[in-house]
Amino acid sequence: MLILTCPYCGVDAEETELAPGGEAHLKRFGPGASDEEFRDYLFARENPKGVHFERWRHAHGCGKWFHAARCTMTLEVFGTYPAQTTKPPKAIREAITAKRPGWTWREFE
């Protein structure tokens, strides 16, 4: 039963208030993309044992989408941040490095 802090309304939200939304920081591919690019955009998913970036919606709260950095092995939450960004903020990445030195996730480290 996770608790995630909604970066918009500041509430420590119960998992039952939240809706999970899968991998974060996906780049959309539309018309003009190759079959492979489009397949990977829709289906290829990071599925790490460890640090993961994912999307959540505070569905039964303020309704906002946000991102969480979380460990899939321990469920430790390294931080949450607004969804309107294409990469994890520096503070979040540093917070992860402090706890999981040498981590990588996609192109981020």
Partner: peptide, 14 residues
């Protein structure tokens, strides 16, 4: 099933 990636073999009670 939970809707988020998880390797703990523990799910959410709800």
């Amino acid at each position: 099933a939970d809707g988020y990636n998880n390797y703990t073999q523990r799910g959410s009670f709800h």
